[in-house]
């Protein structure tokens, strides 16, 4: 979103006040749920059930955070969310890396080595981004079972790579489409091969789109719940599934403060990425919606 010099519309004083008021109210609306989560995650439980959710904590405690991380009951084991956090990391890192590399190479081929029906092939890949994943759940469960991967992180890596290729290919294809093909042709005439052209000519200028792609895949895969819940609900579960188990567990007193700390822990990685590289996150969103 580059802020190009735009023609400003003249607005009167009252209109401007109204606009600011509206914008601030909406900001409040977006911030409120998260603010409440944060505030209540550092309160003792008695202050939540007996007190006001908007109030700042009277007694500040990090006990809920420690509990959410290492001792809370998740499913049947009192392990906290820690092992599941690592499950998610172990799933996200390879899945993002593999799908990004494949997407880059696919994008390169689909733009610089055009062949018959390449647009149709790309269309098939692109449509795969938007299918309701319910349509692949049953066969995927079978295949993972046959491969001996059900319930494991490896199974989830496979799933996320397969269903992430469409988007990563889309990003790199759109990006490389704007890359001057003459440079590629010139390198060919100089005798550079397929991989050489990719390494020497396209890769060095692929920084921004790689960041966009990595952020998008990371956010999507980290936040996935459906695949995690379907294929790895036990000790191999990712963070989102574990958080849901923690929150929905019906045994004992509902420890809201622990739930909130857990929810923030689950949100933290993607939120950090967003804060650090929000610009790229937005670009990824846009490229995923407005093709080209």
């Amino acid at each position: 979103m580059s802020s190009v010099q735009t023609q400003s519309v003249q607005t009167g004083r009252i209109a401007r006040t109204f606009i600011y008021l509206f914008l601030l109210l909406m900001a409040l609306f977006y911030l409120l749920p998260f603010f409440i989560m944060v505030v209540n995650s550092v309160k003792p439980l008695s202050e939540i059930t007996g007190g006001n959710m908007m109030a700042l904590p009277e007694v500040f405690t990090i006990e809920p955070w420690l509990a959410a991380w290492s001792t809370a009951q998740v499913g049947v084991e009192p392990t906290g969310l820690r092992p599941y956090f690592w499950n998610s990391i172990k799933m996200v890192v390879p899945a993002v890396a593999i799908s990004t590399v494949l997407g880059a190479i696919n994008g390169y081929i689909l733009t610089k080595w055009r062949f018959k029906y390449d647009t149709i092939l790309f269309g098939l890949m692109l449509f795969s981004c938007f299918i309701p994943f319910q349509i692949v759940l049953i066969p995927m469960a079978r295949i993972l079972g046959i491969l001996g991967l059900s319930g494991s992180t490896y199974g989830l890596i496979l799933v996320h790579v397969v269903y992430g290729i469409g988007f990563s290919t889309l990003y790199f294809r759109n990006y490389y489409a704007a890359f001057p093909t003459e440079l590629v042709r010139a390198a060919q005439i100089d005798g550079a091969g397929f991989f050489q052209i990719f390494y020497r000519i396209l890769m060095p200028s692929s920084g921004p789109i790689t960041v966009v792609c990595v952020i998008w895949q990371f956010t999507n895969i980290w936040n996935d719940f459906l695949f995690g819940a379907s294929f790895a609900s036990g000790s191999g579960a990712p963070m989102t599934v574990a958080l849901n188990n923690l929150v929905q567990s019906s045994t004992g007193v509902k420890e809201y403060n622990v739930h909130f700390a857990g929810a923030i822990l689950a949100a933290l990685p993607t939120l950090l990425v967003y804060i650090v590289a929000g610009r790229y996150f937005v670009r990824g969103l846009m490229a995923g919606s407005v093709k080209g």
């Binding site: 749920p33 936040n223 989102t240 929810a263 949100a267 967003y274």
Partner: peptide, 10 residues
């Protein structure tokens, strides 16, 4: 940037 699970919990 948040997971729907987090949104739902909040």
């Amino acid at each position: 940037a948040l997971s729907f699970i987090v949104t739902g919990t909040a």
